[in-house]
Each structure stands twice: as C-alpha cells, then as structure tokens.
Write a protein that binds this DNA or RNA. Structure first.
Lengths: 227, 227
DNA sequence: CCGTATGTGAACGCTCTGTTACCGCCCCAT
DNA sequence: ATGGGGCGGTAACAGAGCGTTCACATACGG
C-alpha cells in the first residue's frame, strides 16, 4: 500500500499539518485541482482533506474535481467554519464527512480513522460473489461451486458486470456500451452469443443465472423478489 | 414514506429532542434494544441517533443491536462527549457518523441531513406500487401479494402504464398510442385481449384492479371516489 | 328484444432468441 | 516471416414465444 492523502490548500493550516503528521498520515498539499491531478499517485488518492476556511469557492471546486473523473476520491473530509455550515446543504454530494474548524485534533483523527475504515470496508472489493459463483478481480479467475471456470476475457468481463449488478435488467445496447465500451458499434447479437457461451460454461445447473427478458435484454440472478 | 428516527435513550437530552423537532424530524425514543425492536416500523427505522453521554455501555449495546438482524439500520449517528472519543476507535463498525456533545444544533442538523442524503443515494430500487401490487422497473418483475407475476413484455408494459396512472380512464386508442407507442389502424380489440390476459394473471382476487368503463375504455384501481 | 360493446378462446404469422458455423484478427511460437 | 491456435464478431437458420386478429359468446343498455 502506498497510501497518501490529498490536502487543500497549499500550504495547509499549521494545526492541520501537525495533526496529520502526529497521527502518522502521509499527505501532500496542493493549491488547485490541476496540481492535484498532476501529482496523483498511480493508485489514486487514499482520501482528501479539503479546508474551506479561507477559500470556500476554491475548496468546493476542488471537491467537485475530486468527485468527477475516473479516479474519483472516495473519502473527502471537508473542514468548514461554523458560519459556513449552511453552505453544505446543497453540496451533500461533494464530501463524505465534515469537521468544524477550529477542530480538536482528536476529533479530526477520529473522523479520518472512520473514513479510512469505511473506505476499507466498502472500497473496491477484490472479490465478488453471487451464490456459488465467486469472481476474483485480481487474478481474473472465476469459480462456481468450488470448480474453476475457464473463461475468456470477454466472458469474464461480461460475467463480472452481471455479478456486480445482480437483478437488474440490461438491454443489449446497455451491455455493449458498458461491457464492450461506449464507442462500440457491433451488432446486438454479439451479446446473445457471449451470453450463450457463458451459460454453457456455467453448466446446465447454473445456466439459469442469466435470464432472458424477452424484448428487453438479460438479467443476472435474483429470480425471486427481494425480500 | 413513513420516515421515523430511533433515538436513545428515553427520554433523550432536551436539546436533542428540541433540535429534532425544530428540524421537522419524526422520532421515537427508546430505553433499550428490546423496546426498539418492539416499536420498529414496518419498513424499518430510517436512522438512529444514539446518545452515549450518560450510558456508554447501553449506547454501544444499542448500536450493536441496530447493526445486526435483518433490519440493519443504515444510518447510525452517535453522540459522544469529547472524553469518550477514544472509545470510538475499536467500534468503527457501530456507527456511520458521530457528533461531539454538547453539540451545536446546526451541526447536528447538517450531519443528519448528510446521513439522510447518503442513505437516499444508495439502495432503494426504482419501483412503483399500488396496493399489493409492486413493479420493479430495474428488474422488470412484478409481484402481487408477495407472489411473482410471470408477465410477457407487453403485459408488463401495459400494467406499468396502469400502475403509474391509477384511477384515470383511458380509451383503447389512448392505450394503444401510449403503451404500444404508434398510430394504430384497426383493432382496438388488441387492448381487450391484453387486458383480459392481465386480469387472468392478476388472479380472480385482483382482476377487478382493471375496470371496464363501458363505451369509454379502462381504468386501473381507485374504484372509490376520493372521500 | 335488439344493437352494441366486451369477454373469451383459438389460430395465424411475425419477431425475437438460441444455436451453430464460419471468418477475421491477434498473438505467440517455430 | 509465417503458420497455427485461441478468441471474438457476424451471418444464417430454426424454433419458440408472443402479439394480433378473427369468430363467436355473453353482457349491458335503451
């Protein structure tokens, strides 16, 4: 792990820097979104602490940038003064937690710890499973009922999409754009064929994991109504 | 929606009760987990506010209960004093956010709002319902009285249109153009047949959900005139 | 009691899907 | 470089499911 936190602004308030250092966090402060993008680690920022005290507009702008793009930062902690709290109301999507400034170091520590905990629990799992079926995202392997499935790349990608979106119906066009890629112009029957190959490899016993919804598309799992 | 928050302990601190009331939240305070289970609404608690000031053990015990079981509460806000903050370190899984006590009402409001926002973003599939009947738009499934309906595409589309326009009468021509989606020449009887099949699949008990309005068309639900 | 509107069942024909076969591409090994 | 094998996309066909229509029965209203 190469965990490093993004901090705004640059330089950060002294107490913030001191608290992070004393808690053992590694961090890098940036002055704006461009610099943040530029210095982004290969595996993305572990989290971000955005201080809105001095430059609220810059802070919110930074948050928006962190929320967009492929490398969306999952843990954004916003530092705001009491007077700024009403600004949060229509920006709920820009942060994951906030802390009133001036803050007590213990509170900031506790909030960071909780954010990291949540990210660890919910952040990109290396596995996905549905019933007997288990996909390992790191090794690109699939197992059903303890028996390994020998899937090709596209079969694996399709199955991965299905497993991570159980129960929902997708049209062939949706599958083409979301599994094959947005700029794909192939025929919709391609999906049929791959679904058939998947069903064949899943075995007769589990072939019904992928259900045809006539005139609509395909659905994975969840035959029964969710309780 | 019948949103109601669980509050611990009973009675809650006056400032907490006052803040919730002023913010327009509905809430019910309970003295222990058993009472919480007993008074749980049909669709579960919208969230919980657990105050750990006076009775830390009871508070954490309450959190553990809320985290277990089928009706896991997704939004747990913990109120702790500054001196208790170190108690949070190994209980990260018991709460979703915390607020230092004594708190400023604005901060509690903001944290509740953010918790509700997060809960709203995750989960809750898109569905429509009328009485016992529930349609899930994501899975293209229909259920009545807990039993799945095996509908064909057009049957589902027709029922979906009815459910989303309850009480209103539509002519066959209106249904043809709005459900079938094209200008129609010739057999309005197509609608009749589909309505008949829908009634059959709804079962004798619910067949009257679709009513014939002679010389006009069909109406779904809402037999009675609104009082 | 008659005319019209609707329910019902069956049959037809079309569309959609499952399935197989084939072709082209890419990668790797000889 | 070149041949082969694996993989993925496409075409074609057959079958099944489904929508529509027709014919007739039944209910309703005047």
């Amino acid at each position: 792990m190469n965990e490093i936190l993004l901090v705004f602004p640059d330089p950060p308030p002294p107490l913030l820097a001191q608290t992070l250092d004393l808690s053992g966090y590694r961090w890098k402060s940036v002055a704006n979104a461009a610099v943040a993008m530029q210095h982004e680690p290969p595996d993305g920022w572990t989290g971000a602490i955005v201080c809105a005290d001095d430059d609220p507009e810059g802070a919110f702008s930074m948050c928006r940038t962190l929320r967009k793009g492929d490398s969306r930062v999952e843990s954004v902690l916003l530092l705001v003064s009491g007077a700024q709290m009403h600004d949060l109301e229509h920006r709920e999507d820009l942060f994951d937690d906030f802390c009133l400034s001036p803050f007590h170091p213990k509170e900031l520590e506790a909030r960071l710890r909780h954010l990291m905990f949540r990210a660890g629990r919910t952040g990109t799992p290396e596995l996905a499973s549905y019933g007997d079926l288990v996909l390992n995202f790191e090794t690109y392997q699939a197992v059903i009922g303890g028996k390994p499935l020998d899937l090709t790349y596209m079969e694996y990608e399709l199955l991965k999409f299905f497993v991570t979106h159980p129960g929902k119906v997708f049209t062939r066009e949706q599958l083409l754009s979301r599994v094959w890629g947005y700029e794909y112009y192939g025929g919709a029957r391609t999906v049929d064929v791959h679904v058939r190959r998947l069903r064949a490899k899943l075995g007769e016993e589990h072939a019904n994991l992928i259900q045809t919804v006539r005139s609509v598309g395909y659905r994975f799992g969840q035959t029964r109504w969710p309780a």
